[in-house]
């Protein structure tokens, strides 16, 4: 997070992390499709010839809050392939929040856990802690055949017992993408606001800001309703308070 008091500009860094081919880039593409043109620039992709992410994707989002504060959200993905570990470590440097994009396929369970462990290690290498980092987990590819993916019931049961809010998504169709993003934005904003008192310093209204972002992302209803589409996460507050 970078805060420039002089120009009243705030920059937040959010990172989409997860195993290879879980749909991180697809999430950013879906966000880019729906976001208001005035609130974004080009989606930058540093990929290889076979469309695999080489370094990262970057989606810049810019919002002007009612209080006059300019909020820039830089949304990054990391390359999922195992060989790019050092790149992932660089990209998570200074991250304010993480969407972990998990592959719903049963046979990807080991890769999901390995990638999450990799996230934990790379955060720690940057002096960050998974315990105090706002994280939401997105289970992507929910449109695959039921026998190939982990069931809703299983995920609901585990999400209820776990710490992180969980969203179900079909990123290729944009399903669950905005919900996951807003869920992370709200968690991140809560943590940053507790640390830096944006509301007191700038007269910033957090709920109004999240609603503004939701509207810019094409949502017509209340942002709270989209964020509430999560499974579990009731214990997320413990994470936010670093317990």
């Amino acid at each position: 997070m970078q805060l420039d008091f002089r120009t009243r500009e705030l920059t937040i860094k959010l990172v989409y992390y997860g195993p290879a081919l879980s749909g991180k880039t697809t999430n950013l593409q879906a966000l880019h499709r729906v976001v208001d043109r005035d609130s974004t620039g080009r989606l930058m992709t540093l990929d290889t010839k076979d469309d695999r992410t080489l370094f990262f994707d970057l989606l810049p989002l810019n919002f002007k809050a009612k209080s006059g504060v300019s909020v820039r959200i830089k949304v990054f993905t990391v390359p999922g392939q195992a060989i790019h570990s050092s790149t992932r470590r660089l990209v998570v440097q200074g991250a304010d929040g993480v969407v972990f994009v998990a592959d719903s396929q049963k046979n990807e369970t080991q890769n999901n856990t390995a990638a999450f462990l990799d996230l934990k290690n790379n955060l720690e290498a940057n002096g960050l802690s998974l315990k105090s980092m706002p994280v939401v987990i997105q289970f992507n590819k929910r449109d695959l055949p039921a026998e190939a993916i982990r069931s809703d019931e299983e995920l609901e049961e585990l999400a209820r017992r776990g710490r992180e809010p969980v969203y179900l998504a079909v990123a290729t169709k944009g399903v669950g993408v905005v919900e996951s993003f807003l869920g992370l934005l709200q968690s991140t904003w809560t943590v940053l606001n507790e640390q830096h008192q944006f509301d007191r310093k700038f007269g910033f209204e957090s709920d109004a800001f999240v609603q503004l972002v939701a509207n810019k992302l094409g949502a017509s209803g209340p942002a709270a309703r989209l964020i509430a589409a999560r499974l579990g996460g009731a214990r997320g507050g413990e994470r936010q308070h670093g317990t």
Binding site: F100, A102, K106, T109, Q110, N112, T113, F116, K120, L130, K131, V135, I137, R150, L155, L158, A159, R161, G162, R163, E164, V166, G232
Partner: peptide
Amino acid sequence: AADLDGFVLLGKP
């Protein structure tokens, strides 16, 4: 065990 980060990512506990 549920206090583990990423608990939901585990397969069958």
